[in-house]
Design a protein around this nucleic acid. Structure first.
Lengths: 107, 107
DNA sequence: CGGTCATACTACGCTTGTCGTAGTATTAAT
DNA sequence: ATTAATACTACGACAAGCGTAGTATGACCG
């Protein structure tokens, strides 16, 4: 299991990556993170929803209300163009961070 | 340049890695981080010294006073056995985190 | 038809790590 | 004599994440 201390700073990247292809909502994103990480990272609900709020305030995502299969109302989030650019930046930053950290581990 | 948001969570790992072979002190660690990262990460002084305090409180490092070449008094830090174990844990955690994050980036 | 489980959130206050700013003091170089 | 580099310490602010709690709906099961 991964602790929040080390994944912190990549939650935005993870969430945005799951919105690249289609909009989604909290519970679904949460489940996807769990399964894609093979149960090694389970994001806390409060962390996720506060990330949504932050990302929306920064115009990286936008929300809309929609009704699911069984008449259930949900808040969906869609990535914006600005959000896609931010995602690409975060990917670059990740590559760089990875390289830097490995300089320290190797020796 | 790497932002603190993404390297946060790895400062302990970085600092400990630089103490593995011999004790060192604040200013030197700071310079080493700068050069080893090829100027891509410059740790803030306050961040570094508060990390020292935290790591010492947790018995991962221990401090002692010594005098440098030119009669300059400094606080040196030495990694403890507990600190070495913690370092190895952090390395494992890093490997895992790396793997997990890349699951999200790939697709 | 009543209870429990999974879903889908929101609110609130706390903790921790990092940051910004500021200040102190010593030695080295010009 | 002054400035730059070294070697720190103090203090308050801030942002992310956390723990706890609570609300509410629909699905499933006996």
């Amino acid at each position: 299991m991964i602790s929040s201390d080390v994944i912190r700073g990549y939650n935005d990247l993870i969430i945005l990556s799951l919105l690249l292809d289609q909009p989604s909502y909290g519970y679904d994103i949460s489940r996807q993170i769990r399964t894609i990480s093979e149960e090694r990272y389970v994001i806390k609900e409060t962390t996720l929803y506060s990330a949504f709020n932050r990302l929306e305030k920064q115009d990286h995502i936008e929300s809309f209300s929609a009704v699911g299969k069984h008449g259930r109302k949900r808040t969906y989030y869609r990535i914006t163009e600005k959000g896609r650019a931010y995602y690409r930046e975060k990917c670059d930053e990740w590559m760089l961070t990875k390289k830097v950290i490995e300089h320290f581990i190797k020796e």
